[in-house]
Amino acid sequence: MYYDVSDESQIYELRCKATCITQGGHDITSYFAELKSVWLKLDRRRPINMKCPDDVKIQQAEIHKDCIYDFLVGLDDEFDKIRGYWLKLSPLPKLEESFAFIRKKAQRREAMLKKDGKIESSAVMVSKARIASFYFSHPTPEEKKNMHYTFCNGNRHIEATCFHKNGFPKWFLERQKQ
């Protein structure tokens, strides 16, 4: 009723809320929608009052980065690898791309973990993966030469073995340091 656009306490409260909202086990879409509503309120209360178009673009880019950071920091721990991978990208992708990518990963993970309406534990998934890899043969060197994966534009591997898409294992990073 007594709305004041310049009320700093409201801006402070919204900024705190944006940095404190977490996924908390909820689905990605509802988490993102909640963040987006806070960002819209912040935009209304904190308009960009610059005259130089270049400065406006710079300020918008900074706000865009803040939104991506807010989104990534509030994700559940299961997205830690994706969060790390995403922050390494340069330039930082758009907010909508970030949301779409992580939502796709969450949907894929949920589909892979579900069995008969129940979610299997990660230990069961790991043991099943080890058993499956034991029974299925590895590609021959000739078959590997013909492999190409478009996500990372890499050769000699497929989606299931792409480090860029699935995260880098510790042994790979240690080997690169050596």
Rank of each mutant, 00 (worst) to 15 (best):
Y2F: 13
Y3Q: 11
V5H: 10
V5Q: 15
E8A: 10
Y12Q: 08
Y12E: 06
E13M: 14
R15C: 04
K17E: 15
K17G: 01
A18W: 07
A18T: 01
T19Y: 00
H26Q: 11
D27R: 07
T29W: 03
Y31W: 04
Y31N: 00
F32N: 12
W39Q: 11
W39Y: 15
D43V: 02
P47G: 03
C52V: 12
C52G: 00
P53K: 02
P53Q: 02
D54L: 12
D55Y: 05
D55F: 03
D55W: 07
V56C: 00
K57T: 08
Q59F: 04
Q60L: 15
E62K: 13
K65T: 12
K65D: 12
D66T: 01
I68Y: 00
I68E: 01
Y69N: 09
L72C: 10
K81T: 02
I82N: 00
R83A: 03
K88V: 07
P91W: 03
K94M: 12
E96G: 05
E96K: 13
S98K: 04
F101N: 11
K104W: 05
A106L: 01
R109N: 09
K114Q: 12
K118S: 09
K118R: 13
S122W: 12
S122D: 13
A123Y: 09
M125D: 01
A129M: 09
Y135T: 09
S137V: 11
H138Q: 14
P139D: 04
T140W: 01
T140P: 05
T140N: 04
E143I: 04
K144Y: 06
H148I: 04
T150G: 04
F151C: 07
C152H: 02
N153W: 07
G154E: 06
N155H: 14
N155T: 14
N155K: 15
A160K: 08
A160G: 09
F163V: 09
G167W: 05
W171Q: 11
W171I: 13
L173H: 03
Q176D: 10
Q176L: 13
